[in-house]
Write a protein that binds this DNA or RNA. Sequence first.
RNA 1: UGGGGGCUCGUCUAAUGGUAGGACAGCAGACUCUGGAUCUGUAUGUGGAGGUUCGACUCCUCCGCCCCCAGCCA
Length: 573
Amino acid sequence: MDTNESKPTNFILEAVAEDLKTGRFDYVRTRLPPEPNGYLHIGHVKAFLIDYNTAKEFGGELILRFDDTNPTKEETEFVEAIEEDAQWLGIHWAKVTFASDYFDRLYEWAVRLVKKGLAYVDDQSAKEMSVSRGTLPRGTKWSQTESALKPGIESPYRNRPVEENLDLLERMKNGEFPEGSRVLRAKIDMAHPNILMRDPVMYRIMHATHHRTGDKWSIYPMYDWSHGQNDSMEGITHSLCSFEYEIHRPLYEWFLEQLGEFKTRQIEFSRLNLTYAMMSKRKLRKLVERGVVRGWDDPRLTTLRGLRRRGVNPEAILDFNDRIGVAKTNSWVEMALLEACIRTDLNKRSPRRMAVLRPLKLVIDNYPEAQVEWMEAVNNPEDESAGTRKVPFSKVLYIDRDDFRETPPPKYFRLYPGNEVRLRYAYLVTCTSFVRDPGTGALTEVHCTYDPATHGGDAPDGRKVKSTIHWVSAQHAAKAEVRLYDRLFTVERPDEVEDINEIINPNSLEVLNDCYLEPSLAEAKTGDKFQFERTGYFCADPDSTPEKLVFNRTVSLRDTWSKIEQKQGNRSP
RNA sequence: UGGGGGCUCGUCUAAUGGUAGGACAGCAGACUCUGGAUCUGUAUGUGGAGGUUCGACUCCUCCGCCCCCAGCCA
């Protein structure tokens, strides 16, 4: 069991298996029910994958059904974006449907309930209904004043004759009444301890143009009077949803029971909370609208589009999803886990390249002026089939400023006067001197000598160096802009802070304009991913052109040196 | 003083009356032409109190803490 890496199971899979065994269902069909009112983010992935994986596990099918019951909030643009993002993730569905496909049938079902005396048209205002619904007791965050649960008060319209209800409902549908003037409510129990059962609204009047049905309807169903019915109509066996719908289940079941229709089983799981990630659509929108980020696909966002642009592969997200599991506890997954999954994925598949982000000129004094050697470099030590490439080497190189210190701190093994290091795939070099700008005092170049016997990086006498650094030949280098990203928020739970201004990390984006890449990178196309050796994983941004290369840092490499440095408490400029 | 749900290492998650295990994060070390990767070792957990039992994370009782619910949102 623990040696044979078994595939993840969870309580939902177990429940479904049980349903098959007991004969409650003899097939499995799930549905994926996004509301087309925004872009998908990492929080949606968990729910999507539970629906998809559960169906797949039992050879069943998945229906992608857009929950488009509120025409004032939903747009076709989002339908397309959601399909595209879900496909990118690797989710397959049997067909795409819309809640609005079922508006006619749903209306017939409502008429049936009215005829059974189980639904009525209420003329009360929203305010009146709210007051008459009763209250929760003191001690909940919802009620500071009432001392006990108060039952609701029945509407004066509750016992309208069936014929009158039918007539009014018909006229509501035909658009004869203004918005807010009437609703259709289920007649259940105004004293029910579960407030959702206190005569919930089924239809409200909305004179709005729907993205698919246009102006055909003047009434639109509420979530509770739509979702479960659609599940039933589509023969969905398992309606898997997040925890906040648990309290809806009695109502969900009540409707199907009264209707006498196919009974889907609703099962709830806890939604994903990810540290340092913003999941609230409202707040995400704010970030975009205020220009805090560049758009819905800003690489700092955990939207699927943002992650994709950042350079994250869907496989990493799938792996992450497997590792967080499915349970019913309130959980906060650490961003570090997502990052670990991203690194694991990228490590095994990314070609390695050398890139100097903060350049410092390195001159090899004893190297022939006009000479160029093409050094053989391994493309991916994790994948032999990736082969090798040639990288040009010459007298003047760029190295990273971090790789030189005038006076080395303890345990610093890179370049400093007198020290020998390896230039990766090239030569062993010894630092001889460095030059400062006489005016500013800034370090301008470092000088060294190379040992011609160490071509390729191996010393024939077997001597060791403690460090290998990367480099780029100055005359061959491709210039690029590189964007470094850090967490967008300064707090672990950004959704819990109302004023986003307080929690934005001002340093979440650092643009480096003076980066030098090995020449092969000049041909990188949007989305191409690489490991810049010793630095991190990077991918070509959509902004990148052959004239101006732009790379995003997806995630840095694990950096044990920075840990050592932090412990020493001596960070250098 | 309502209803519903939940509490296992720092975090996520297994163990379904029989050795509390894994992953991420941490720490220590080995190895290394990436201070990467890899490998090894290591610490930390069953919310509390009772009870049932040869044996309890698991079953029972009480207590505590956390989350959700009064949209004509989904």
